[in-house]
Design a protein around this nucleic acid. Structure first.
Length: 295
DNA sequence: CGTTCAACCTGGGCGC
DNA sequence: TGCGCCCAGGTTGAAC
């Protein structure tokens, strides 16, 4: 589920809690298997209780809560939540009680009215992760070695230098978070449609100019998707923190549109599988820049 | 080294 | 109704 635009929307939806103090943290018991928590549920709860939420930031597809100590002399900690496929950050009621993975209870702070008192992490499949970091740990896990430049700011030069010599097809390459952070299966397809490049094109055969177009499309598609608060597909899917559906799915040109007519040329959209993931594209509108054009 | 692949999970939808 | 299979927005570590 959540890619850059959805995670960015989650983060913005938690801004209303910034400044609050965590008075309780809990990993509810449930029939479903627990997800990965570092350094373990009990210790994590102990270490974050009493801290103040100083900021909410996004690192790639993670929500990162900056937790300040009571005292200026105490270093902050960072709680990184990785929603993976089905995770949601909520200030609203969860879709189901049994998949609530983490509950953070906040005091009222100075603003007493309209501030949510609880933040939930809800995750149906349980593939998500919750990790508490110190400064060095955060940098090691979410820093420039692990994550490439953010998709909202990536440049053609950066993409060309990171992927230009790769033997991979361009679409799976765009999912590599070390090359560019935040692009997932939906937005990779939408970006390549908008630049008219076949997802099977080999990276090393793309000219420098193609990387400029891809980077530009990545920035604009992701920014537009953020404005539309992400993509909600089907029931029990991505929601904003206050439980509204995203609206970018109405602007998808290829993702999920197998066999439907291309909105540009009316030819059917094709679904293929690349590295175990579905890829949607228009064979008419999307070409391989490195190969010969048919006449 | 670079790239691919099975595995981690739950649950909805579909064909039989 | 029920069963078995396929599918799903992601990432990791082992295997080629």
């Amino acid at each position: 589920m959540p890619e850059l635009p959805e995670v960015e929307t989650m983060c913005r939806g938690l801004d209303c809690v910034v400044g609050g103090r965590i008075i309780a943290a809990e990993f509810p018991r449930s029939r479903v298997r627990p997800l990965a928590v570092e350094p373990g549920p009990a210790l994590l709860c102990r270490r974050i209780t009493g801290r103040t939420l100083a900021a909410v930031r996004r690192r790639g597809k993670r929500v990162v809560l900056e937790l300040a100590g009571d005292d200026r002399s105490i270093d902050p900690l960072w709680l990184a939540i990785e929603p993976r496929m089905t995770g949601l950050m909520l200030v609203a009621e969860p879709p189901s009680p049994e998949h609530v993975r983490l509950v953070l209870e906040f005091d009222h702070g100075r603003r007493t009215v309209d501030r949510p008192r609880r933040v939930l992490f809800w995750d149906r499949r349980g593939l998500g992760t919750i990790t508490l970091y110190d400064r060095a740990g955060l940098e090691a896990a979410c820093g420039g070695v692990k994550l490439g430049p953010d998709g909202l700011e990536v440049t053609g030069v950066e993409l060309a230098s990171r992927l230009g010599r790769s033997r991979r097809a361009v679409k799976p390459a765009l999912l590599d978070q070390r090359a560019v952070a935040g692009i997932g299966n939906i937005y990779a397809a939408e970006i390549l449609f908008r630049v008219g490049i076949d997802p099977r094109s080999l990276c090393r055969r793309l000219p420098a100019e193609a990387w400029e177009r891809i980077a530009s499309a990545a920035r604009s598609v992701l920014a537009e998707a953020v404005r539309f608060e992400g993509s909600s597909i089907g029931d029990e899917t991505y929601r904003t923190a206050d439980n509204r559906v995203g609206r970018f799915q109405h602007r998808h040109r290829v993702y999920g549109r197998a066999d439907l007519p291309c909105l540009t040329c009316s030819q059917p959209i094709v679904r293929i599988v690349q590295t175990q993931r579905a890829t949607f594209f228009c064979p008419q509108c999307q070409r391989r820049p490195g190969s010969r054009r048919r006449t």
